[in-house]
């Protein structure tokens, strides 16, 4: 199994055959995750001058089966950070619980400095790296979007190996191939971030989500999108529908529409 997110989670029946019951064996050595089962596809995000826009569709696939069509893969952490999950959905839900208790502990402790996006990203990267070092990875690719300690836009990613990096535009999975070139065309560097408005950024992300829906078979036209700014905090919309789809490009492609062969 390789670690490229775009080839995750495709236990196609014709390739892998019958359901493999061997992991149900109770004897033998302790089993760790060896492949993601129910998966989410790309998460994409882009910084703009006052904040960050992040989006992910609402689909959770079981291999090639579009299994759950209303799974929210963006998680608001507090008023200044949102986390987007790609990869295994159960690991996402585990991390969601972990972050929940982190938030609870943080609120009980008397520190009046809330965890901002950078703190959260560092924490998540330690969790991911610790798990990969135990050979028991959390099979996710994660984007953390929000504001850092100076209220500046913050966007960074971490994956199942604990690899972390930051960039003005980021995408996981298929998005790294399909969306990043589109996003980088408008926002190639930090300088361009300062010239990009919220509306431009949102439009850019929506356009990229459309391209992903066109070309990523494990995607959906129902998606969540969040904008994080200092002024308005987190504006999270979890039931957006892709607009102005045009399948005209598919007209000439064999296999689309009525022309099957």
């Amino acid at each position: 199994m390789d670690c490229h997110p775009e080839v995750w989670g495709r236990p196609r029946y014709e390739i892998y055959g019958d359901y493999d019951h061997s992991h149900l064996h109770t004897s033998g050595p302790m089993q760790h995750t060896q492949q993601p089962i129910v998966t989410g596809t790309s998460v994409i995000a882009v910084k703009f001058k006052d904040g960050v826009v992040i989006a992910a569709d609402n689909l959770a696939s079981y291999g090639s089966l579009a299994r759950f069509t209303d799974v929210k893969r963006l998680r608001k952490f507090n008023s200044q950070s949102v986390i987007g999950f790609g990869g295994d959905v159960s690991d996402m839900q585990y991390l969601d619980r972990t972050l929940g208790s982190l938030d609870t502990n943080e609120n009980y402790s008397n520190s009046d400095q809330p965890l901002h996006a950078r703190n959260l990203h560092t924490y998540l990267s330690k969790v991911m790296y610790a798990r990969r070092s135990k050979f028991d990875p959390l099979w996710n690719a994660i984007l953390v979007a929000g504001l850092d300690g100076e209220d500046m836009p913050f966007l960074a990613s971490v994956d199942l190996l604990g690899t972390k990096f930051s960039s003005p535009t980021l995408a996981t999975g298929f998005g790294a191939h399909l969306a990043v070139p589109i996003l980088r065309r408008t926002v190639p560097d930090e300088e361009a971030v300062q010239q990009t408005t919220k509306d431009q950024a949102v439009e850019l992300v929506k356009e990229s989500m459309k391209v992903l829906f066109y070309r990523d078979a494990r995607s959906l036209d129902n998606y969540s999108i969040a904008v994080i700014t200092k002024e308005s905090g987190v504006e999270l919309k979890e039931n957006e529908k892709l607009e102005n789809q045009s399948w005209a490009f598919a007209d000439q492609i064999r296999g689309y529409g009525t022309q099957v062969n």
């Binding site: 670690c3 019951h21 061997s22 992991h23 070092s133 990875p137």
Partner: peptide, 19 residues
């Protein structure tokens, strides 16, 4: 392609921890 059948006994880790 013929299906791959589940192998007997404990399965091997297929996770590669480096890149």
């Amino acid at each position: 392609q013929q299906p791959n059948t589940a192998s007997e006994g404990a399965r091997q880790h297929s996770f590669y921890p480096y890149t």
